[in-house]
Every structure is written in structure tokens, then in C-alpha cells.
Design a protein around this nucleic acid. Structure first.
Lengths: 125, 125
DNA sequence: TGACATTATATCCGGTCCGACATATATTCT
DNA sequence: AGAATATATGTCGGACCGGATATAATGTCA
């Protein structure tokens, strides 16, 4: 589901610094993607901190296990709306959300993967 | 486009404190709606601060004047994704976004209107 | 290793969202 | 007031999102 391109490159020995660096993204696109990734990580953090399974979390959200997996993977079929609603439902405060959104990537953070599927609609053209 | 219910009530002399107060929303739903409203206001602020028209802004975003109007009105057909993408494209930093998201409503702020159209999809059930 | 639990990936369908366009309302000029 | 400009509202076709289901991959423990 992730970018097959990037996966292949990494298996071939490449080091990919960031999604935006590899793909030719504008800074707005880049910022949006990183925002989404942070929300996704935050969701997993919340769930794991409460020792919940994806299936249990899905029940709390009125969704399915597979969708929760995709949320945590920042899949391209998952919107920021969905991530924010999920986090708020799990008890995150707007302040916690804001922190998630504004924090710069942690130093030494592992390289980021992102689905590079060709953008069709709002490509921020 | 806004909630006809609320409009009617106000015209009839009612004071509506907040959308959530009137409708029976969960705190997560309430937080989400207020978040969306803040982003919408922030978008208008950005545009007006640059003395741009909605039509000009629409061109910058690759969208239409009517859609920008709906964005600024936090219309129910506008997603948080779209608002965030628009703000980032107009030059907002993630930090500015975070501030918008975490700020409590200003004191003395006018009562909030929100399209109460029956939630169909993710009602955060 | 095998059984079981958990997580990841793939696909489908129904409903939603977005840009576009038409049109209405509002604001700002002279 | 009337024209010009700006903003708001309504609708539509088509792309997209979300829950559901199926199944594959990964992890855990005895």
C-alpha cells in the first residue's frame, strides 16, 4: 500500500530522507503530508498507550480494524478529517492535537514512507 | 446554507450560545466543529490581511470563488483537509495552524452558527 | 512448529466532497 | 439610483472517502 517505488529503492540499498525530498512536492504539499503522518503516529501512540488492539479501537470509533490500520499508516484513502475525529473521540484535546501538528519531526526520526500515487484531485496546483 | 433552524430562532429573538449547546453534540463532535470554524475564520483572516478577493484566492488554490466562500463559511460540504490545504498553500505555517487549532474561542465572541444538516457520514457514532 | 491473536493489504459499493457554473444577494462606487 | 465589483447560495457530474469484508502477513506463546 505504501509507495512501491520507495520500498523497491530501499530494498535496493537506497536511503530515502523524506517523502517530499524524493517526490517533487511543493512545501505546502510536504507540510500537509507531514501533518497527516504526525496525526497517524499520534493515533497509534494513543492506542498503544491504552493497550488497545486495532479491533477494539475500531469498535470505539464505529469503524473496522482494517480502517484503523490504514489510519495509523496514513494511507492515502484516509483523510485528515478522519484522523482528527478519531483522535478527538479517543480523548485527545485540541491542545494535544495542536502540539502534534506543530512539533517538528524528532531528530533522528526514521525515514518517512508515503503513498506516492498520482494526485488527481486537489493537487494544490 | 447555515442552519435554518438556528437562523429562524434568532430572528424570533432567541440567543444561541453555541452550536453544540443547541444541538445535542458529544464533546468530540463539538471540538471538531469548533476546530473547523477556527480554520475557516483563519482562512478569511489570511485572505483579508492580504487584501485578496475570493476569486483571486480561488485562482491561487486552483478552485472557484464559490468554493472559497463555502470554505470561509465552514460549509458542511467543506472538509478540514481542504481548509488545511488552503491555509498551507496561502503560506500558513504548521505552527500557525496549531495556534488556530488550540486557541480557545475569544472572549465575547459572537454566537456561532453552524450548518446542522443531519450528519450522514462519520457521525462519530 | 502449529494454533491463535494481531496487524497489514486489497477491493467493493454507497455516500460524500470538490470544482465548476449559474444565479442571487451584498457592497462600493459615481 | 444604477453599474460594477464582491460575496453568498444552489445544483450537478465525477472523483474520492469510509466502512465492510476477505485474505495475507506478522507476531506470540506453548
Amino acid at each position: 500500500m505504501k509507495s512501491e517505488k520507495i520500498k523497491k529503492l530501499e530494498q535496493a540499498g537506497w536511503k530515502v530522507g523524506s517523502a517530499a525530498e524524493f517526490l517533487g512536492l511543493t512545501s505546502a504539499e510536504e507540510a500537509f503530508i507531514e501533518l497527516k503522518l504526525r496525526l497517524a503516529r499520534s493515533l497509534r501512540h494513543y492506542r498503544v498507550a491504552r493497550t488497545l488492539t486495532q479491533a477494539e479501537t475500531a469498535r470505539m470509533l464505529g469503524s473496522s480494524q482494517s480502517r484503523v490500520a490504514k489510519m495509523e499508516a496514513a494511507d492515502s484513502t484516509v483523510s485528515v478529517d478522519l484522523l482528527i475525529k478519531a483522535l478527538l473521540t479517543l480523548g485527545a484535546t485540541p491542545q494535544a492535537l495542536a502540539r502534534t501538528i506543530s512539533h517538528p519531526a524528532a531528530v533522528g526520526e526514521e525515514p518517512v514512507h508515503y503513498d506516492a500515487a498520482k494526485p488527481k484531485r486537489h493537487a494544490m496546483k
